[in-house]
Amino acid sequence: MTSSPQTVELGELALDGGAVLPSLQVAFETYGELSPQRDNAVLVCHALTMDQYAASRHPVTGKPGWWTRMIGPGRSLDPQRHFIICANVLGSCMGTTGPKSLHEDGRPWGLRFPVITIADMVRAQAKLLDHLGIDRLCAAIGGSMGGMQVLQWASLYPDRVERAVAIATAARHSAQNIAFHEVGRQAIMADPAWAGGDYYGGPAPAAGLSVARMAAHITYMSEQGLTEKFGRRLQDREAISFGFDADFQVESYLRHQGSSFTDRFDANSYLYITRAMDYFDLAERHGGVLGEAFRGSGTRFCVISFNTDWLYPTSESRRVVHALNSVRAPVSFVELSSPYGHDAFLLESPDLYRIVDGFLSGTPS
């Protein structure tokens, strides 16, 4: 499948925190062709550690796109029917303006980069759509942090989103999730190589970022999934070592996940994006009443959760659904069964594809 990778300059961007980015650059990929009526655009919003390479080979890792199960000929998001857009989020590290981008003084922003929010990410995406001449999306879809962006899109720009698919997500970050993120941030900042965020040009805080990734990755899986995949099986040995090597397969797996992550992600971006997720609370902007975030919306919603997801449990999805019901917004909701926990939306899930395909096509799922 052919993709079109692009980077555009979009001018300045005012942020929720009061700062103004003097120059916004957005890196994105597209699949398919925009129809003459410009009515087939689908925005794919990515999760924390993903990027714009949703359905094309990653230039750093060489791996296939992270959502090739959803995007492709004959799939739910079909480039023969849809013009699919996936943009690297504001604050990230794969081409969109973030901490590793160059400041006007020619040095990387580092911690001089202003703190951002999910709404800031969405405003950056809106500027991209303006640049592309797209007034209204056929759909916005995403899981996890991508789902947060979808909900924010429907709240900020209700007239620009026909259908919203929010998967394995929430309308706010819980205290537990904030706590996990703080552990990851502290691991990064405790790494001597972090150097107060000014490590560009020298060794990166790989050890701290690796630990942050390991801790986060545990939350993406379920106890059932971990047990089925690893149990207490030993890694390449017949007996325990009575030491601190990776005796167990699950330890070796987490170490691999941590070390491989440092090859493609920037530690400062991890700090900024996790902070944006922590600040996310749609109700807070509307007097504490979540339904008010969607009042008067013309968007149709599809909310999907997974029964083994303890990072964003079904109760969080139900909260969104109840809020939509309270303002008579059209919404479909389903909880899917999966042993894979939060990561289920990225893994093989025929029921998920069937539901998304039915919702986007306007036919019963």
Rank of each mutant, 00 (worst) to 15 (best):
S56H: 10
H322A: 14
R123C: 06
G298K: 11
Q235F: 14
S332V: 05
V289L: 08
V42T: 10
D105G: 02
P114I: 06
C302W: 00
V150Q: 07
L111N: 02
P5L: 04
D120H: 08
F265E: 08
G74N: 11
F248P: 04
V165N: 00
C86D: 04
D130Y: 01
L347M: 15
D198S: 09
S332K: 04
L347Q: 13
T7L: 03
V327Y: 06
A55E: 11
L128T: 10
A206R: 15
E9V: 05
Y157P: 07
A19H: 12
V150H: 07
R232C: 03
R354L: 08
A55F: 00
V89T: 07
G287E: 06
I218L: 15
S241I: 03
A55R: 00
R255L: 10
Q25S: 14
R172W: 10
D198V: 01
K127Q: 09
M145W: 14
E33D: 15
R112H: 12
A126N: 11
V250T: 14
V334K: 11
W194H: 03
T363G: 01
Y272S: 09
N88R: 00
S92Y: 02
D278Y: 03
A195P: 01
R354E: 15
Y253T: 08
A206E: 14
L15F: 08
S23D: 11
W109F: 14
S269L: 06
G296P: 07
G147R: 04
Q6V: 06
D266H: 07
T7M: 05
A166N: 11
A27Y: 00
Y279A: 09
D245M: 07
G291F: 01
T30V: 09
Q224W: 05
S23H: 13
L24Y: 04
A164D: 04
A204W: 00
S92R: 03
S361G: 15
F306M: 10
G184D: 13
R123H: 12
L90C: 09
G231M: 06
F113K: 04
P5T: 12
H82G: 13
S144D: 13
P203V: 02
G243S: 15
N88E: 12
L10R: 02
R172G: 04
A329E: 05
R318L: 11
G62S: 07
M277T: 09
T227Q: 14
V161K: 05
Q235S: 15
P158E: 06
N177V: 10
Y220C: 02
Y279W: 08
L132N: 08
A207D: 08
L346K: 00
N268D: 13
L128C: 08
R255W: 12
K127S: 05
L111R: 10
Y279I: 02
E29L: 13
S252R: 14
R233H: 11
P114F: 02
G288S: 02
Y253Q: 08
F265A: 10
A164H: 09
D236K: 14
F294M: 03
M214Y: 03
V26I: 12
E29D: 15
N307T: 07
G143W: 04
G147M: 08
Y270M: 03
M94G: 01
G298L: 09
F261C: 08
Y279P: 01
A19E: 15
D343Y: 01
